[in-house]
Design a protein around this nucleic acid. Sequence first.
DNA 1: TCAATTAGCGTACTACGTACACTGTACGAG
DNA 2: CTCGTACAGTGTACGTAGTACGCTAATTGA
Lengths: 303, 303
Amino acid sequence: MAGRKKQVPRAQAVRPQPASQAEQSATRPLTRDDLVQASVRVDPDLRRRSELLWEDRSRSTRGPKAAFTPDDVVQAAIHIAEADGLSAVTMSAVSARLGLTTMAIYRYFPKKDALLDAIVDAAMGRPPIPSDPRGDWRDDVTQWAHAKRTMLCARPWLAELPFVAAPHGPNWLRWVEAVVEPLSRIGLNAVDTGEMLSVIDGYTRGASDTAISLARARARGTSDAEWTAAVGADLGRAIGDPRFPAFAALITAPSGGDPRTMETSFDFGLQRVLDGIERYVAATTTQPTRPTRVAKPATRSQR
Amino acid sequence: MAGRKKQVPRAQAVRPQPASQAEQSATRPLTRDDLVQASVRVDPDLRRRSELLWEDRSRSTRGPKAAFTPDDVVQAAIHIAEADGLSAVTMSAVSARLGLTTMAIYRYFPKKDALLDAIVDAAMGRPPIPSDPRGDWRDDVTQWAHAKRTMLCARPWLAELPFVAAPHGPNWLRWVEAVVEPLSRIGLNAVDTGEMLSVIDGYTRGASDTAISLARARARGTSDAEWTAAVGADLGRAIGDPRFPAFAALITAPSGGDPRTMETSFDFGLQRVLDGIERYVAATTTQPTRPTRVAKPATRSQR
DNA sequence: TCAATTAGCGTACTACGTACACTGTACGAG
DNA sequence: CTCGTACAGTGTACGTAGTACGCTAATTGA
């Protein structure tokens, strides 16, 4: 009943927020400070899901002993997801794997959403530990990005979940911490450091999509040849279509004997991103009075 | 029956591809050329879904006239998604909106998957048209990235779909074309142009996540204050926790009177990415014999 | 000892996707 | 003009998933 679907009455039209709130960040733009403010009044459903990720689940000793821990349930669900994909993770399947009946799972997680939250966080695992605090931040960030990409590719079923809106659990914070630490070594102020975090994490997740798609196809039993054929067939529709001349030229151009694998491509792009960060760092530290680089949308601010 | 779930038998263990294929891109690395190869033998289900996106749906004149077009169905579904979220898009709801019974939808789309594919492509809409071919590529790419981000934020329910594995429809190709065109103006070779495409699109999608999350909260009726409180409450758990010192320091640091909105933050990061690309362009064009920049993973290749 | 608390079970209800058979309609070949 | 073919939409029914609710039994603090 407390689900978040259909909270809005059907009669309400396309624009759920008529005029009371900004639709983009126009009238009341959200700033970083807003995010840091203390929580006052939160959607109780999300609140509960978040708490389930963080709270210590060992309160009462009364009653019969539980046969499993919440983590056992999560591991069972992850096992099913690895084997048969996320769609096979049903409450029945998870309980059956533990030798329980369907409803027993609800003693561990009140909703399937909450279980999925826990699965996401557990599946992320631990990030690599950065080098010593005197190491080169660029090496550590590179290692982090590759590790995150590898993690995402190893669990392609994670991409089937709405990654964005899930509550942030301990492992999520661990991953963030592992990249903020080297980024903090750059010497930028907090705001800029946050921007760099967004750039690197954004690139890492966004640019891993193709590899994730391949990994998912493999997990489904599709051969690499089949996958490339399917993707190639879609992209190939651009060839000869007058609507897509530039893209058609791109994919038909010879690669010139420099075949790059997906991972080296990822690394190549990552180094460009890090180059851009370094250029900013150089410009900032050389010139202590950093100019405010606020750009109007769709307009290049600075180069 | 033809679904892609449970194709792999349950007994198969965690690693679905034991030794026949490479697990990462180690033994048989996939290169860009593989993608361009002609299609031979493809998953018939995905094949069909892709064809439904491209084929001309006006073949036979026999039989009764259809009351709607496939696009009418898609628009009805999109309307429901905008109003009540993606979970409200059921076959019943879509047909009811058109004044039909549930099963009538299957005359237009054989599976819900196929309908969702069409919804995704239609919801992407048309990209902005690049400036004249003599314009600055950087302006056009910046405009494109902002437009894509705006598009994603305007339809936050798109993020609930597994964006990655969906077939690529006409609008998807239009968006790609719209950014490949200015990228082609840089003067890089095809391989490098493809890399830059990946960098920019990856950053754009990945770095839009927070804004999408906010947009989704708004669509659900959550106020901005509630959303910031929820996110802030999660992030705030880092404060005081010895496991997350760097991140705690980051979010507790004063912003120094330079509050950036989400959109300016996005643009700031985008300009860093474009800086990195420009730096590479400068290095490449100055020195015609471009060195092969292939990095081993987790190791910086060049700076 | 006993009352409170809680693990797991069984039943039942709802919603959703969709297979299948059926009805009626419109066109085109004869 | 007619009639068979092809197709739009309907109605029914089934399987699966999530989960509300109440029950039983086990465990332990008071």
